[in-house]
Design a protein around this nucleic acid. Structure first.
Ligand SMILES: [Mn+2]
Ligand SMILES: [Mn+2]
Ligand SMILES: [Zn+2]
Ligand SMILES: [Zn+2]
Lengths: 138, 138
DNA sequence: CTATACGTGAAAATGATTATCATCTAATAT
DNA sequence: ATATTAGATGATAATCATTTTCACGTATAG
């Protein structure tokens, strides 16, 4: 992933490398705020704007998948930077990657039946995660 | 749909009825701004806040489906107020309802494999609509 | 008709994201 | 190592959709 950055005239600053590392290592689909707090552990002077800027760059380079939400902050996946389904817990806001077969069939069928040239898709399931279900019954 | 409102202590104001009518009759998945402009044709003093408030109520009553987008305004479907796939043109922002078989199978499979209790879902395909493809080749 | 909640209009507040700008620094050449 | 410079950062202001506030208006019940 670092290689993807070297291509352009991108500098490898400590903040940038740390943001990279956090996004690549986390499976939690972190928010900007979460990345910000984690970067600050190592580089306490880091600005929130820097986190936004670097995530934007990585998104443009196709190294990070952005999960935009109309309410509440966006979330990011640095492990699977391509469209895939997500499970969103409406209680604790945890986001998981379920194991599910690909949607190429569905995509192609919709493309041919509507005449759209499909370039992207988004599939989210909203519900209550197992842990929050336990909390309910307790 | 008007009946759904009578249930509670909801008053049937002219603005409210007009917003209702617009959402129920439009197949274009209008934005708040579009509803606002249309309401103003008949009731020129209507406030934008009133449009937001009434759409919120209808959403809470399950009479309108909200399509939230992280960037740009949200869009609303008053014809199919239940989860269904959408085709979003990334050029002209038009949104269509494609004809597609139901996703109950997929939903159930994901629910059982992840332990989630799924209460909602969202499936969007992003691409270029036929009309914008023509504009491209011209 | 009167009374009373609910609704409205106007404007301010909110919250996430983006833009601005002076300063800093990583990368490269000398 | 030093100088150069284009890109990066930090702090702050601006943006934009949406929500909140509050004084006033009005639909509805009695
Ligand atoms: Mn993911
Ligand atoms: Mn629809
Ligand atoms: Zn949960
Ligand atoms: Zn189009």
């Amino acid at each position: 992933m670092i290689e993807a950055l070297r291509g352009q005239n991108f500098r490898l600053t400590p903040q940038r490398l740390e943001i990279l590392r956090i996004l690549a290592s986390s499976r939690e689909h972190p928010s900007v705020e979460q990345v910000f707090e984690e970067v600050r552990r190592r580089f306490p002077t880091t600005s929130l704007a820097t986190v936004y800027r670097n995530i934007l760059k990585l998104k443009e380079l196709g190294q990070v998948l952005e999960l935009g939400f109309a309410e509440g902050g966006n979330r990011y996946d640095g492990n699977r930077p391509f469209p895939h389904p997500h499970m969103v817990c409406i209680r604790c806001r945890k986001i998981m990657d379920p194991d599910v077969e690909n949607l190429e069939n569905l995509t192609e069928r919709i493309a041919s039946s509507t005449g759209f040239k499909i370039v992207n898709h988004r599939l989210d399931f909203f519900g209550i995660c197992p842990r929050c279900q336990e909390a309910d019954s307790a």
